[in-house]
Every structure is written in structure tokens, then in C-alpha cells.
């Protein structure tokens, strides 16, 4: 019975991944149908027309010193990094759990993954509280904002249990099944939610970097 359910979960999980790929492809086609605005003015005195400013802008995510908001909110930035690392590790776990069983059975790997997912889940929990408690966050939050961070948080905690099972720390296949089904739901939901922001990140960063770089206003902060 568990074997059949596990098999179904794996099939559904791959199907969900394929579905997400199709929806994302459609989404990108939709996005590219909007005509990109171009600069008709000559570059500014300090402006650049090469790819440098766009690349600098895209690398923003790993340069917390580049923005005042991350420079002054370093703890928030670190929790952001941890949360996104958790998401990456969680996806890696979901995709490769059936392909690389010996890798996930390794105790050291297991503890590392469990630590990352667990801490990322705690960050997620903190983010839910922050959204619920701070008036400004309540004002700008949609139901999707609450739901997205909640399902990711729950998914990460299930991932901890799933990894413990794969490493033989607990013996319950249901954790793996639950994780695969949770991942499937997550993959199907993602293209319709704000979680899709990572798809847009390179595009929006490219354009803002290019535009402001052309004018010469993207600069490392001085003074």
C-alpha cells in the first residue's frame, strides 16, 4: 500500500514539475509580449551602454552592502538568505531523493539538510508572524502573501522529517510521501503566486540596471 502511494507521489511530483515548466513558459511568453522600453537619449556623462550595470544590478542579491535597506538590516538579509537557501535545498531534496538515495542516506548530509530546512522553516514562521503583527505588513499583504509563506514553511518542516526518514533516523515512509505530495502542490501553486518572483528577478534587475546604468546613476555608494 505504502509502495503504491509512494510511486503515485513520485509520478504526481514529476507531473507537477512538468506542469510548472509549461505554465512558466506561457508566463514568460506573456511577459515578453509587452514591448520593452528603450533609451532614445544619449548615455549620461558617467553612463555606460555595456552589460556592466545590468550585471551589477543582477548581482544585487549577493551584495548586501550595495543597498541601505540590507546594509542596515543585515539580520533581515541573513534570514532572507537562509530562507531562500532552504527553498533551494528543499527542491533539491524533492527532485533527487529518488535519484540519489545513498547521498541522502549519509548522516552528515542529512544533518546539514535538516539544519538548513529547520532553520529556514523557523525563518518562515518568523515571516508569518511579522506579516501578522506589523500594521504596515498587514496593510500590504494579500491572502496569497500569507498562504505562500505558510505553505513554504510547512513544506520545509515536512522536509526535515522526510530527510530524517531518508537517512534512517526515523523509519516512516509517510514523511517522504507527504513531502512529495506537498512539493507537488507547491509546484502547481507556485506559477500562480508571488513565489514566482524568482522567475522575474533576472529580467527586472537587467532592465533597471541597464536603464539607470545608461544614465550613469548606478554606482557603488560613496561617502
Amino acid at each position: 500500500m505504502e509502495g503504491n502511494l509512494l510511486h503515485t507521489a513520485e509520478v504526481v511530483h514529476w507531473a507537477a514539475l512538468a506542469f510548472m515548466g509549461v505554465v512558466y513558459t506561457i508566463r514568460l511568453i506573456w511577459l515578453l509580449k509587452f514591448k520593452a522600453g528603450g533609451d532614445k537619449q544619449l548615455p549620461g556623462d558617467q553612463g555606460r551602454t555595456d552589460l556592466g550595470p545590468a550585471m551589477y544590478s543582477m548581482a544585487n542579491v549577493v551584495m548586501p552592502w550595495a543597498m541601505e535597506s540590507t546594509r542596515k538590516g543585515m539580520f533581515f538579509y541573513l534570514t532572507f538568505a537562509l530562507f531562500h537557501l532552504g527553498v533551494t535545498v528543499g527542491i533539491f531534496l524533492a527532485i533527487f531523493s529518488s535519484l540519489l538515495p545513498t547521498f541522502f542516506a549519509d548522516q552528515n548530509v542529512a544533518y546539514a539538510i535538516m539544519a538548513i530546512l529547520g532553520l529556514a522553516g523557523l525563518v518562515g514562521f518568523g515571516r508569518i508572524l511579522r506579516r501578522l503583527v506589523r500594521p504596515v505588513m498587514r496593510l500590504i499583504s494579500t491572502p496569497d502573501d500569507y498562504f505562500s509563506v505558510t505553505i513554504l514553511t510547512v513544506w520545509m518542516f515536512i522536509g526535515v522529517a522526510c530527510q530524517a526518514h531518508l537517512a534512517g533516523l526515523v523509519n516512516n515512509t509517510n514523511y517522504l510521501i507527504a513531502y512529495l505530495f506537498a512539493t507537488s502542490f507547491f509546484l502547481v501553486y507556485v506559477p500562480f503566486s508571488k513565489i514566482s518572483h524568482y522567475l522575474y528577478y533576472p529580467f527586472i534587475r537587467y532592465y533597471i540596471g541597464k536603464t539607470l546604468g545608461h544614465r550613469g546613476s548606478v554606482l557603488p555608494q560613496k561617502g
Partner: peptide
């Protein structure tokens, strides 16, 4: 496209 990206990318 730039305006649309600013409209769809905010994660609040």
C-alpha cells in the same frame, strides 16, 4: 515590459 515587471515582481 519594465512597468509590467515592476507590477508583477513585488513580494510585499
Amino acid at each position: 515590459r519594465q512597468v509590467v515587471l515592476s507590477l508583477v515582481s513585488c513580494v510585499h
